[in-house]
Design a protein around this nucleic acid. Structure first.
Lengths: 325, 325
DNA sequence: GTAATAGTGTCTTTCAGACAGTATGAC
DNA sequence: GTCATACTGTCTGAAAGACACTATTAC
């Protein structure tokens, strides 16, 4: 009944925070020139009462952080993943490692939190930040390279979910600026598309090709499948913002509405309409004024705090964000 | 680096279908009087190229079904779970078994599919079916028993997400007919609440108490943590119906709109407003008429098929269901 | 005709999205 | 006063939710 080949379970943490209007993720490198990696380690049932407690232990040991909000993301069966076009995958760790990815949200406390290992999230996904308009890398690098890849339209592998989609359709669906437009939650789908197209460093590494054959450098690479887990995390939190007040896990005790909006925009990757955002957040009962004010160079802003009661009042209190503004 | 205690990964499949207006799940019993269990088995990296392929193998071997749509649900770290009030958990399987739950959707083909092991889903969760109005078990059995449990308001254990909630608050939030009302997606939360309150058979079994101490019988019990996985699956598909056209994975090639609505209601557990449903589905471009008709005892109904193009046209084509009607 | 089921036309209320404005500080 | 940032009042159009109605079969 027990399997012959021993299995190791790896727990990997995506620890997110937002500083001013910059989304951050905890990552560290094992040495010069080595890719950044997320806090992770093997699940040991002798030491860890539950999976989540094991993960919290690694975050404590490796990042020195006591995690608050934690949620499970996904379980990946192969760290060096299956590879397109019939090539055999045999990346660094043996294939019997199963990774369970987790998302954790935390606050940055100036002074108390060491910010040096919190890196800008969009360094890993430059094409996901639309706050300054359409990212330049899209038109310049990504779409032409994807178009070239779509020309050689081989049979696509992959899960049953995308079974009927051709390369061109996948590109139009996930990167298309016309038609279905850019769905900000499809972060993983976009990353996997770039991976399948051989446009991210990890794809070449897993196929044992030299990185020199990369046509363009699309974001910073990570160790193992950590960038895939990070993509899963970004997609998940972008979706979750809309129906859960998770943003407050990353806010200080009191904050201004402008600051709140900046941080939401930082995560979701696009600008929001100011008046609508305020209406949503205030009439939705998500926040309440503290009475205090801050001075910020113009008219002083009122301070707010999270209204915790909303959790017991409404089933899905979120920010139902529409775009633009 | 390798953990000392060997770990076994168990893959468990929730295979759902809908017959007429009855939601079904594949489950079988190992023998007389033994609880029903879902198709499952150990992941063996030597035989299974990926987790999902392993799962498909078990479904084929144990249920004789070739699965189409499959999605991962959640990974549970302990099959005999941690127990309330400081008692030690030591249920049947050793604690180093990790279960990965999957949701699969399938069609029932009269003749080709053996229906004998497809059991009515709501036999396991009678309180989740509101199509006939508020379930009788709620007022009669569940709420009084929960109220009694809330009286002895001990310190609640559990995940950080519900850290601040008292027993009374959890009851009001997930079962409350006033205030936040009954959120049909919170199937797991309700099951876990009943588990924590000792109102489902599995809770007593895991605490090694005799089943005789159950005040009422709330649905049929299942082996291991299979009912928890099933609850996760029901909650997931209820949510997913709203933004993905997954219902068509359980529909035949052609169908009437009334039949489609019946099956959606079967899954989501409440009635829908007929006109709004039709408008949604037609103007949303989810279906197209085939031109054919059926005769059903009244006016003949037009036949429709799923409009597959919608997948490439809109980012989140679902049924955005509101209630009632 | 009745019973049964299928299908439509249109009203009302809510709310997302956007317009353009006013308020209060520093200098 | 200007500049900068904070904040608000109100219009519009799209949908969600619900009303009552008509259509086509079997008997």
């Amino acid at each position: 009944m027990a399997s012959l080949l021993p299995i190791e379970i790896n727990l990997t943490a995506v620890i997110m925070a937002v500083q001013a209007d910059e989304p951050l993720v905890y990552a560290s490198s094992a040495g010069d020139g080595l890719p950044q990696g997320l806090p992770s380690g093997p699940f040991d049932p002798l030491n860890h009462r539950t999976l989540e407690l094991g993960l919290r232990g690694f975050a404590q040991d490796q990042a020195g952080l006591e995690l608050g909000y934690v949620e499970q993301l996904y379980t990946f069966g192969d760290r060096g993943r299956t590879v397109a076009d019939g090539q055999q995958a045999d990346a660094l760790p043996s294939p019997h490692v199963v990774s369970i990815g987790y998302l954790a949200l935390t606050r940055i406390f100036p002074g108390a939190t060491d910010p040096s290992n919190f890196l800008p999230l969009y360094a890993f996904f430059p094409w996901e930040d639309w706050r300054g308009g359409k990212p330049g890398a899209l038109e310049r690098d990504i779409l032409p390279a994807l178009a070239r890849w779509a020309e050689g339209n081989g049979p696509d592998h992959g899960s049953a979910d995308r079974r009927a989609l051709s390369r061109k359709e996948r590109i139009a669906l996930h990167f298309g600026s016309e038609g279905p437009s850019f769905d900000e939650e499809k972060v993983l789908e976009r990353y996997e598309l770039l991976y399948d197209a051989g446009l991210v460093e990890e794809a070449l590494r897993d196929r044992r090709l030299p990185p020199a054959s990369l046509p363009v450098k699309l974001g910073q690479a990570m160790a193992f499948d950590h960038r895939r887990i990070l993509a899963t995390a970004l997609g998940r939190i972008r979706g979750k913002l809309k129906y859960r007040p998770v943003i407050f896990e990353m806010m200080p005790e009191t904050f201004t509405l402008t600051d709140l909006q900046r941080k939401v925009e930082a995560i979701s990757g696009h600008h929001l309409h100011k008046q609508n955002f305020r209406r949503l957040v205030e009439t939705g009962g998500l926040v309440e004024p503290t009475g205090g004010q801050t001075t910020t160079g113009g008219r002083p802003a009122a301070l707010f705090r999270f209204r915790r009661d909303v959790l017991t009042e409404r089933p899905a209190p979120g920010l139902r964000l529409g775009r633009s503004g």
